[in-house]
Each structure stands twice: as C-alpha cells, then as structure tokens.
Write a protein that binds this DNA or RNA. Structure first.
Lengths: 146, 146
DNA sequence: GGCATATAGTTAGTTATGCAACTAATTTCA
DNA sequence: TGAAATTAGTTGCATAACTAACTATATGCC
C-alpha cells in the first residue's frame, strides 16, 4: 500500500476529530444565539425535508446516514416541537411519511443562512480546489466502506 | 467571499456527515470482530496515553478535543474496565494523572493495527497529496473556529 | 389460501456529548 | 495575610448514537 503510509491512528483523528467537532459546535452556538431551539441533528433532518418534503423515515435514514432508531427519536423530538408531522402512507401502512409544518417551513431561510455563514467562518483561507478535494476524498471514503 | 460559494448546507454535510460516520462505524466493527470490548471514543483516549502516559484529564481534553465532562465519564468507564487508573498529582492535588494499566499497554499494538487497517480500507484510491490537503484544510478549519 | 421471509418502524439498554452549576485546590495581588 | 479570581475535576439534565430484540404490515411462493 504505497499511498497509505501514515502515522498510527493519526488519520483517524483527522477525519473524525477536531474539525467536524469544531464546526458542529460553532453551528450549534450560532443557532442558539439566533434564538433557535433546534439541535444540529434536528436541523440536518429538516434540511433534507426542505429539499424534498414528506419522506419516509427509512429514506431519511439513507439521506442522513443514520440508523432507524436514531431517526425514530429525532422525529419524536421534532414532532414534540411541532416542526414535523408523521402521516401513515395510504399505499403502504408500514410507512410513516414525515412532513414539515408551516413553522418548520418558516425556519428554512434563517437556518440555511446561519449554516452558510458558519461554513464561511470555518473556511477562511481555504480555496475552492481544496474544498473540492475534501469533498471528493470523503465521497471515495464513504464508497470504500459501504 | 469569492472562495466560499457553495450550495446551502451542503458543505456542512460533507464535513460532519457520511465519511466520518462510516469510518467510525467500520473501526468499531473491526474492534468488535477482534473481540475487543472498547469503544472508539475510549480507544481515542488510550491512543493519546500510549503516546504519552499519565496525562491530566485537562490535557486529555485538549488532545482529544473533548470537554471536561466527556473526559470525566470516559475515564470512569475506562477505569471500570481496568484499563486506566487515576492518581492524584503530588504537586497539585486538583490534578488527576490518568495512567495506563498493564492490560491497556497490551492492547496497543493490536488496536493500532486495526486502526491502520481500517484507514487503509477507507483510503483505497486516495493519494498522499489528497490526504495532505484534507489534513491541512481541517487544521485551518479548526484554527478558524477556536 | 397460508406460511416463510422481508421491510418499516419502535422500544430498551449502554455509551457519549454539550451545557450549566457545582466543589475543591491553587494562584494573584492589594 | 486573606479575599477574589482561576483552574481541575464532578454531577445533573437533555439529546443523540449503536445494538439487539421486538411489532406490524407487505410480499413471495408453494
């Protein structure tokens, strides 16, 4: 493996460590300062529903890379906050369609602005090619492992 | 911000999403298949102690990018499994020095092999320059936010 | 039709994370 | 010297993650 010589565990720390934690914390902080009561995990679910509303829980699992119990409880909490609603599908009664409420629709622009602003802060001094490299590497890593 | 034009939230998903989750899950799975009962979070603490033994909890916070309660509880669990031991420092009695047991020392080679092997699987088709770019970008992101 | 199998979602138990509030030991400095 | 501020670590509370085991509905096949 000529390309993959690296120090013990170091790369694991890179991919799973400091940067993603720091970004997550900053985004959460920016949400809180804007008076938003949602977690970034909840936001990531809403994000996919803003792109396409009324997805099944299984589809949300696939798109957010979470397992089923995680999605069940995220939806539980989002439903408590009246941001989404479960509706049984008429074609297949095993399926819950998760749809946005009007309240949630109203949060879209603000939270996406905050996410963009957070990423702008995070990426000061990083150029477009580097971003493309990171995205492309991460895609290959994901594909290698799934 | 000429360098930072990107689609809504997309980059957030890249940095916090699929790749790191996939690597973490694979590493955990490889530990389990080798009969190791430790979590990747516990491993990441042990990893820093293998590099330098008997660190304070605060120093472990800095090196693992975790907050103090997280380290307190990770050490609690590692102590239950008899992998580390807390010892009050003689110079400053506020400080707990966290030291490896012989059992933990014996796990070093195996777990680091498993981590390296996992990262090799993950990085098939990724070259050295790309890895360096990812590391460098993540370092700058971290510095920007802290 | 009816049994085996697969799929969608939930529940229970353990570990981990973040924040806020707390105790105890140490340092600062007037 | 002694009160105020700082530092190290712990505890309580809420959310989230993974695994395994579970219910309910749908599908496949004889």
């Amino acid at each position: 493996m000529p390309n993959n010589q690296f120090k013990r565990g170091e790369l694991y720390s890179v991919i799973n460590g400091m940067a993603s934690t720091a970004v997550a914390r900053r985004l959460q902080k920016n949400f809180r300062q804007a008076g938003l009561e949602i977690t970034i995990e909840q936001w990531s679910v809403l994000y996919h529903l803003w792109k396409e509303d009324c997805l099944s829980q299984q589809e949300l699992c696939n798109r957010t890379f979470r397992d089923k119990p995680s999605i069940t409880r995220l939806i539980d909490n989002l439903e408590k906050q009246k941001l989404v609603k479960r509706t049984a599908s008429k074609e297949d009664r095993r399926i819950n369609l998760v749809c946005l409420t009007e309240t949630a629709k109203g949060l879209q622009d603000l939270t996406i602005d905050l996410a963009n602003q957070t990423m702008s802060e995070a990426l000061i001094g990083v150029n477009k090619e580097e971003i493309e490299t990171v995205k492309s590497v991460f895609q290959r890593v994901y594909d290698n492992l799934t």
